Simulated assay, not measured.
Amino acid sequence: MANQTTPQRRFPLRYIATFLALLASVIIGLVASNGNASPSVQEYYGSSESRFGYWLLLGNTRHCGLYRKGQLSPFPISTAHRAMEQKLYTRLELSPGSKVLDAGAGSGYVAIYMAQKGLNVQAIDITPHHIADARKNIKKHKLEDKVSVEYGDYHDLSSFPDESFDGIYTMETFVHADDPVKVLRNFYRLLKPGGALVLHEADFSRNTGTLQDVLRLSHCQNTLEEGGYQELTEKVGFKDFSLEDLTDEVLPMWRLFGVLGYLPYQLFRILGIQDRFINVMAGVEAWLNWGDGRYISVRVLKP
């Protein structure tokens, strides 16, 4: 009598597909922002999408990397981050022992780099988990004697006396200002005569509805049109304006964002939920419309 084998039961593919769809729905629901049409800075950086994305892709560093012109690969990203921090340090043109204000410290990596170069850094931020992260990272690098991190809003720097700093910088945080002129006046007051202000920020040459959606949802409403930084800084009294266009040197990172986010972004658009994934939206739209904006390093001096 022939041996009879029990046929193997296949797990229906529809069950697998349903499970994956449900899992994807749960992940999307957990990661998506709360849908606030005009989020605050704290809401933007506190959203699950922002926190997860910065951790996964950038190791909790919150700024662009700097690459060689023409480079295709965005890796290693940490090397590019350090190169951007070196660029900012070079633009400050300060000697070791100088005191600087980091106006928007994020997780503290820029302040750490500046301290390792010999600068004394007073760092401020308005987002509680940024402050906690920065303090932890500074302690890990044993730089508590070189870097201090406090809660602070650059719209109100009254706790610091006049001419407190040899230099002030922002690394992609001035775009969040609600009143940019007031912020620049605060910076001007705090700088010693001859002190340098360096802003690593973005501007744009072509305005669109999509761009304004991205800026609103990421609370970057202070992103200026080309020429705006010179106009504002000179209005406040700064002199010796200089600008370096670093757009081509940050492209590898934004290309990575665009490629990784392209398919999810198109799906989100079909579902009408693209506004709840602002970092995906910003990454893809910046890549698709490359050339409509710039990444710039602005340097001015207080006379």
Rank of each mutant, 00 (worst) to 15 (best):
N3W: 06
P7C: 02
Q8K: 00
P12E: 04
L13S: 10
L13I: 07
I16R: 03
L20S: 12
L20G: 08
L22S: 06
S33D: 05
S33A: 15
A37S: 14
V41E: 09
V41G: 01
Q42R: 15
Q42T: 15
Y44G: 00
E49K: 01
Y54R: 07
L57W: 14
Y67K: 04
K69G: 06
Q71I: 00
L72Y: 10
S73P: 02
S73H: 07
F75C: 04
S78M: 02
M84F: 14
M84S: 12
L88N: 04
Y89I: 09
Y89R: 09
L94P: 00
S95N: 10
D102I: 09
G106N: 03
G108H: 06
V110Q: 05
A111P: 04
L119Y: 08
A123G: 09
I126R: 06
P128G: 02
I131F: 06
A134C: 08
R135H: 11
H141Q: 15
L143T: 02
E144F: 06
E144S: 15
K146M: 13
D153E: 11
L157V: 11
L157I: 12
G167S: 06
T170M: 11
M171I: 14
H176S: 09
A177P: 08
D178A: 15
P180S: 10
N186W: 06
L191R: 13
A196H: 14
V198E: 05
L199C: 10
H200D: 12
H200K: 06
F204N: 01
T210E: 15
H219D: 09
T223D: 03
G227F: 04
G228N: 11
K235M: 13
F241D: 10
D248Y: 01
L251N: 04
M253S: 11
W254E: 03
Y262I: 08
Q266R: 15
R269S: 07
L271C: 13
F277P: 05
V280S: 12
M281A: 14
Y295M: 05
Y295G: 00
S297I: 13
S297N: 12
R299H: 07
R299P: 07
P303S: 09
